[in-house]
Computed example of a mutant assay.
Amino acid sequence: MTDADTLLEEIAADLAPRGVTAGAMFGARALKSHGKAFACLKGEVLAVKLGAGTPAHAEALALAGAELFDPAGSGRPFKDWVALPADRAGHWGRYAERALDALGG
């Protein structure tokens, strides 16, 4: 298990009282609320669905190394999702919680 996997498990445990469950999305581990994914661990990157145009989305994109999430690497990223690299893991929990809030969970 990698440090990223361990951190995702910690985030899932912290958010479990809010009904968050672990699942899969894009062939990767994900966090879900009411069956809808709001965070996804792809390799050493955590992608969070913050909603394009929201303050949280803009703040996350302003972090060094953050970018729109392109799960297939096809050059067509998802506009609502921000990919946060492992060197920004200290921010993962906060943005996972904000993504859950955006989902209404």
Rank of each mutant, 00 (worst) to 15 (best):
residue 1 M to R: 11
residue 2 T to N: 14
residue 3 D to T: 14
residue 6 T to N: 08
residue 7 L to S: 05
residue 7 L to V: 08
residue 8 L to G: 00
residue 8 L to Y: 00
residue 8 L to I: 07
residue 8 L to C: 02
residue 9 E to H: 09
residue 10 E to C: 10
residue 10 E to R: 15
residue 12 A to P: 00
residue 12 A to Y: 01
residue 12 A to R: 14
residue 13 A to L: 13
residue 14 D to C: 08
residue 15 L to Y: 02
residue 16 A to H: 09
residue 17 P to G: 08
residue 18 R to C: 08
residue 18 R to V: 07
residue 18 R to Q: 14
residue 20 V to C: 03
residue 20 V to W: 00
residue 20 V to H: 03
residue 21 T to A: 13
residue 22 A to M: 09
residue 22 A to S: 11
residue 23 G to M: 11
residue 26 F to V: 10
residue 26 F to S: 10
residue 26 F to G: 08
residue 27 G to Q: 00
residue 28 A to D: 13
residue 29 R to G: 09
residue 30 A to E: 06
residue 30 A to L: 03
residue 30 A to S: 15
residue 30 A to D: 01
residue 31 L to K: 05
residue 31 L to R: 04
residue 32 K to Y: 03
residue 33 S to I: 08
residue 33 S to T: 07
residue 34 H to I: 02
residue 34 H to Q: 14
residue 35 G to A: 10
residue 36 K to Y: 02
residue 37 A to S: 13
residue 37 A to W: 03
residue 37 A to P: 04
residue 39 A to W: 02
residue 39 A to Y: 01
residue 39 A to Q: 04
residue 41 L to M: 06
residue 42 K to L: 13
residue 42 K to A: 13
residue 42 K to M: 12
residue 43 G to Y: 05
residue 45 V to K: 07
residue 46 L to N: 04
residue 47 A to C: 05
residue 47 A to P: 00
residue 47 A to W: 00
residue 48 V to W: 02
residue 48 V to Y: 02
residue 49 K to W: 00
residue 50 L to S: 07
residue 50 L to D: 06
residue 51 G to C: 06
residue 51 G to W: 04
residue 52 A to N: 05
residue 52 A to L: 04
residue 53 G to W: 05
residue 53 G to N: 06
residue 53 G to Q: 06
residue 55 P to Q: 05
residue 56 A to Q: 11
residue 58 A to I: 02
residue 58 A to F: 00
residue 58 A to W: 00
residue 59 E to K: 13
residue 61 L to C: 08
residue 62 A to V: 04
residue 62 A to Q: 04
residue 63 L to Q: 12
residue 63 L to Y: 02
residue 63 L to H: 08
residue 64 A to P: 12
residue 64 A to K: 15
residue 65 G to M: 09
residue 65 G to H: 02
residue 65 G to F: 07
residue 66 A to E: 06
residue 66 A to N: 04
residue 66 A to C: 15
residue 67 E to M: 13
residue 67 E to T: 15
residue 67 E to G: 12
residue 69 F to W: 10
residue 69 F to Q: 05
residue 70 D to N: 10
residue 70 D to I: 11
residue 70 D to R: 12
residue 70 D to E: 11
residue 70 D to W: 06
residue 71 P to L: 14
residue 71 P to D: 10
residue 72 A to G: 11
residue 74 S to T: 15
residue 75 G to M: 06
residue 75 G to D: 09
residue 75 G to Y: 03
residue 76 R to G: 02
residue 78 F to E: 12
residue 78 F to R: 10
residue 80 D to Q: 14
residue 81 W to F: 06
residue 82 V to T: 05
residue 83 A to W: 05
residue 85 P to H: 13
residue 88 R to N: 12
residue 89 A to R: 15
residue 90 G to M: 10
residue 91 H to G: 03
residue 91 H to A: 15
residue 91 H to S: 15
residue 92 W to S: 06
residue 92 W to P: 03
residue 93 G to Y: 01
residue 94 R to E: 15
residue 94 R to A: 15
residue 95 Y to S: 10
residue 96 A to E: 10
residue 96 A to Q: 07
residue 97 E to K: 13
residue 97 E to A: 15
residue 99 A to E: 05
residue 100 L to Q: 08
residue 100 L to E: 07
residue 100 L to I: 09
residue 101 D to G: 11
residue 102 A to D: 04
residue 102 A to S: 12
residue 103 L to S: 11
